[in-house]
Design a protein around this nucleic acid. Sequence first.
DNA 1: TGTACATCAGTGAACGCGCGTTCACTGATGTAC
DNA 2: TGTACATCAGTGAACGCGCGTTCACTGATGTAC
Lengths: 209, 209
Amino acid sequence: MRATKTKTELRQDQIVQAALKIIARQGFQHLSIAAVADEVGVVPSAIYRHYGSKEEVLDAALEQVSARLLGNVAGARRDGSNALDRLRSLLLRHVELVQNEVPVPRVVFSEAIFTGQKLRRRRVLQVFEDYLAQIARLIEEGQRAGEIRPELCSRTLAMMFLGLVQPPAILWLMSEGEYRFAEQVKSAWAVFRAMLVPAGTPPAIGFRN
Amino acid sequence: MRATKTKTELRQDQIVQAALKIIARQGFQHLSIAAVADEVGVVPSAIYRHYGSKEEVLDAALEQVSARLLGNVAGARRDGSNALDRLRSLLLRHVELVQNEVPVPRVVFSEAIFTGQKLRRRRVLQVFEDYLAQIARLIEEGQRAGEIRPELCSRTLAMMFLGLVQPPAILWLMSEGEYRFAEQVKSAWAVFRAMLVPAGTPPAIGFRN
DNA sequence: TGTACATCAGTGAACGCGCGTTCACTGATGTAC
DNA sequence: TGTACATCAGTGAACGCGCGTTCACTGATGTAC
């Protein structure tokens, strides 16, 4: 059956979404032009009407991931009125992103993106660094506002912040959803949060999960 | 030139080492039977004298990684006489392992191992869980000894502990060694350590890097 | 509103390539006598 | 110590397969008149 003719801009978007969906559900190894075409509902060669090569599809997917991550930062800013609330919100948004749409670790780690061209690796690094810088900025704002201990290095904290999600994310991915991902991250956040706040702030921790 | 005839047990070891070396240097995508054979110094078909398939080579490599990780735990126990010293030692050993021999994240994440057979994924999960359990044990020992705050969940702390290494490890891998991996981890450890110890313990943090 | 043509997305067959794997053969090593 | 044979690791050619990509062709959509 012939697919309905569709504008390139729309198809390009469908293709990127399809690619991310495949990565999310089956992993990077299963990302082939054929699989993407299948998901979109066209024949493999049709993909080449909208992207010049598989590489271009990957580039577009990477941009999408970058946009989602930075979009989450903006969203978290809106969600909370102080640094700690914003960080918490960002963490939850990140978890949701990984669970429902884009398994960020898979994308970041995937060899195809990773070991491919030097240029693309630089780009992935850039995305990572940008995200990290945004997190560090949230932390610095908290430090200036007196919500977060000012003697701690914001970059180190930003890295640790990402470290709250990553190991649970891996476990979650590997266990095929069995693992209580969000709960674990929340629990780690409680511990981390207690460490951020200046001495004298009422402790909110003590959960065991 | 014909390769010198070598006992299977030795060749099997060489093959696994070669595989890990290739993963470390070029990534999983470049791990082919041909590449392994090249590294070992034999012809591709010779590999099949020692392993039945590529899958078997991967399984053996995974066992090797598991052994290294658990070996590090045992080594860290010897290195330090108290929980905090042991945890620090384990962290440094882990960094060294990632830097010099086995980029654990690449192995754990690699699609080949990851999205391959369900059985192998279970096995990777197992390795991960075992390592985590060992770390949690070190923490619990510290809690019983009064070195680590007893109200914190040891499993959560173990996860956070791994989170100290992972994001820096990724950055390091992506930046091709430019990034100051060990320094970053040490800095994160200082912050984490201060969070572990009961109130009243002399603070050792305050570095900025 | 209707017709003629240009544009552009979809199709299916075919390609070259790399990779995992097989297999008959070679030749070195070790063992029995 | 020397000879005959079994064992076993190494070799190179060949295979089937999947994948990214190309290309001539089809047919739908939009535009000019």
